[in-house]
Design a binder for these strands. Structure first.
Lengths: 218, 218
DNA sequence: CAGTAAACCTACCCGCGAGTAGGTTACGGG
DNA sequence: CCCGTAACCTACTCGCGGGTAGGTTTACTG
């Protein structure tokens, strides 16, 4: 009844901090910030509560550290897959694949970032919003790059950020949808989005536009 | 120093319930479920705490009633703008316009539904998720309808639900983006999405597909 | 102009969970 | 082999906020 040296004891601080952060991400993602208790985090981490406080600080501190670590991991994962030398469509494709791949491998991270971080008012929400806004701007830059190369109109360029926001949201939504439909590969998800969105962009560039065939448009 | 009859007193239950629900939506949207206190709801509603309990029940009850009321309002608003006799593209267009219009007029409702409802684990999350799933299915039906009319391939049809999820997410994301960029009309937002997505759908139907020009596709 | 029912309030209880005081045990260096 | 320090724990305090007991006031009703 003692699998691995009976009880892993006296581990260096560095290791414990990692364990506690891992546990915290798990607990926060499962229950949400407010519903999560420090006792539970401590228990999941296999550690007593004062350890959590001495190593990671208050509950807010702990949550902030979770958010920042997971956000960095996600951004790094996406950045690692994207090479700015690639053509815009390949950049989008690679970014999407990296994104979905990360989400598939790190559900808890994704849930914390997507669901919890925004619902906790205050500085967290702002921090996450800014990070998301930066992602949107990066995507917008890719969209604009494509457009200007092919002589896009100012009208479309003005809307680039909106379109980018839509694309980012579409990817996030697909990631959530994926949780309920796991029998799809990350690559397939990414190609769906590319087919849906890129051809839309392409037609915009060609000057094609969809218009409602009724006059009323407030 | 007494604007309207000094103090609105002894109002019928029906009216008070509305006021309390309005206040609750406001408070929940601003602070999130857990951070919101019943005292604050009572104060915003201009009523004492026991009133809230006798009329609307526990905090969970109150939240559930908020969610259901606002969800119904949103769905009704969208449904009112969509006529199933219309062509699929017009249905999407009308639905999007109604959606953005509602969000513009009811920020708190939208925030509660979008941000808070999911982060409160348990039955609420499930309820909201199901509502969202139904919306996605409706959109998917429109997509499929278009496709089959024009002889869409099975492959694309299989992915219709995923595409619908992406579209719904795109709309939600645009709605959030809108909060920071209010100098855009709801109609413009809807037309952006239609241009982006519909032309994408259209090309899919025509058999055009975007493919990565590298072999690796897990 | 009672009397009754519904609207409404003040003032409290109490459990849960954030945060801490103060000690105990094991490892590493001399 | 012993001592210092870093790892670690048990056992608390205490305030916040969900929920309620029990009474008071106003409006309608005959």
């Amino acid at each position: 009844m003692q699998e691995k040296t009976r009880r892993a004891r006296r581990l260096p601080r560095e290791v414990r901090e990692r364990q506690i952060l891992d546990a915290a991400v798990e607990v926060f993602s499962a229950n949400g910030y407010h519903a999560a208790s420090m006792d539970e985090v401590a228990e999941v981490a296999g550690v007593s509560k004062p350890m959590v406080y001495t190593y990671l600080g208050s509950k807010e501190d702990l949550f902030a550290k979770c958010i920042r670590r997971e956000a960095k991991r996600l951004l790094d994962a996406v950045a690692a897959g994207v090479d700015t030398d690639m053509t815009p469509d390949m950049q989008l494709w690679s970014g999407l694949r990296s994104f979905f791949s990360f989400v598939g491998d790190n559900r808890s991270s994704w849930l914390v970032l997507h669901r919890q971080a925004l619902s906790v008012g205050g500085s967290f929400a702002e921090e996450i919003s800014q990070m998301r806004a930066r992602s949107i701007e990066l995507v917008a830059a890719v969209v604009v790059a494509t457009g200007t190369k092919q002589g896009i109109g100012e009208e479309a360029e003005k809307s680039a950020e909106g379109l980018a926001a839509a694309l980012v949201g579409a990817a996030e939504s697909l990631a959530v949808w994926w949780l309920d439909h796991p029998d799809v590969s990350d690559g397939l998800l990414a190609s769906w989005l590319m087919n849906l969105v890129w051809l839309g962009f392409g037609d915009l560039v060609k000057g094609e536009v969809w218009t409602p065939n009724f006059p009323a448009t407030t």
